[in-house]
Lab assay of single mutants.
Amino acid sequence: NQASVVANQLIPINVALTLVMMRSEVVTPVGIPAEDIPRLVSMQVNRAVPLGTTLMPDMVKGYA
């Protein structure tokens, strides 16, 4: 099963993503693939993302 990107903490809106904010985990439904974590660094989410939430492509500005 493919690992997805999961919030490692509350990720506020309009804050640049850092490695420490994200972890990889096998979850259902599948979200952004874990291998895209380096690409996500410095991008921003378009809504607050609670701890443990799977990041979906539509949550990250400029990802999709």
Rank of each mutant, 00 (worst) to 15 (best):
N1F: 12
N1E: 15
N1L: 15
N1V: 15
N1D: 15
N1H: 13
Q2T: 14
Q2A: 09
Q2D: 15
Q2F: 13
A3W: 07
A3S: 14
A3H: 10
S4I: 02
S4H: 01
V5K: 01
V6F: 02
V6D: 01
V6N: 02
V6Q: 03
V6S: 02
V6C: 05
A7H: 02
A7Q: 01
N8T: 15
Q9F: 06
Q9E: 10
L10I: 13
L10M: 14
L10Q: 13
L10E: 13
L10Y: 12
L10R: 11
L10F: 14
I11C: 03
I11Q: 01
I11K: 00
I11F: 02
I11V: 07
I11N: 00
I11D: 01
I11T: 00
P12G: 09
P12R: 07
P12E: 12
P12C: 06
I13M: 13
I13Q: 14
I13A: 10
I13D: 12
I13V: 09
N14H: 13
N14Q: 08
N14I: 03
N14L: 07
N14K: 05
V15Q: 15
V15I: 15
V15K: 11
V15S: 13
A16S: 11
A16P: 12
A16Y: 10
L17K: 00
L17Y: 00
T18S: 14
T18R: 08
T18W: 03
L19W: 09
L19S: 12
L19I: 12
L19A: 12
L19E: 14
V20D: 15
V20Q: 13
V20C: 11
V20F: 13
V20M: 14
V20T: 13
M21K: 00
M21N: 07
M21E: 02
M21P: 00
M21F: 04
M21S: 05
M21A: 05
M22L: 15
M22G: 01
M22I: 13
M22A: 01
M22N: 00
M22T: 00
R23L: 05
R23Y: 07
S24V: 10
S24N: 06
S24D: 08
S24Q: 12
E25W: 06
E25Y: 04
E25L: 05
E25I: 05
V26C: 08
V26R: 04
V26L: 11
V27Q: 04
V27N: 03
V27D: 01
V27C: 05
V27I: 09
T28A: 09
P29K: 05
P29M: 04
P29H: 05
V30Q: 14
V30I: 13
V30G: 10
G31R: 02
G31M: 02
I32R: 00
I32S: 00
I32K: 00
P33V: 11
P33T: 06
P33W: 08
P33K: 08
A34Q: 06
A34Y: 07
A34E: 10
A34T: 07
A34H: 14
A34G: 08
E35C: 12
E35L: 09
E35F: 08
E35M: 08
D36F: 13
D36R: 05
D36C: 07
D36T: 08
D36M: 10
D36P: 01
I37L: 10
I37R: 09
I37D: 01
I37N: 00
P38C: 09
P38H: 13
P38T: 13
P38Y: 09
R39M: 15
R39K: 15
R39P: 02
R39L: 12
L40A: 00
L40P: 00
L40M: 08
V41Y: 04
V41K: 05
V41N: 04
V41G: 00
S42P: 00
S42V: 03
S42Y: 06
M43K: 12
M43P: 00
M43S: 07
M43I: 04
Q44I: 09
Q44F: 11
Q44S: 12
V45E: 02
V45C: 06
V45R: 00
V45H: 00
N46M: 10
N46G: 10
N46V: 14
A48F: 15
A48V: 10
A48P: 13
A48Y: 08
A48E: 13
A48T: 15
A48L: 11
V49Y: 02
V49K: 02
V49C: 06
V49S: 02
V49L: 13
V49A: 04
P50S: 07
L51I: 15
L51Y: 13
L51V: 11
G52M: 04
G52H: 10
T53W: 10
T54R: 03
T54E: 01
T54F: 03
T54S: 04
L55P: 01
L55M: 15
L55D: 01
L55I: 14
L55F: 13
M56C: 05
M56S: 06
M56K: 09
M56H: 08
P57K: 08
P57V: 05
P57I: 05
D58L: 10
D58P: 06
D58I: 09
D58Q: 14
D58R: 06
M59V: 06
M59A: 07
M59F: 10
V60Q: 01
V60A: 01
V60M: 06
V60D: 03
K61Y: 08
K61A: 12
K61Q: 11
K61M: 12
G62A: 11
G62E: 13
Y63G: 04
Y63I: 04
Y63R: 04
Y63V: 04
A64M: 10
A64W: 04
A64D: 12
A64E: 10
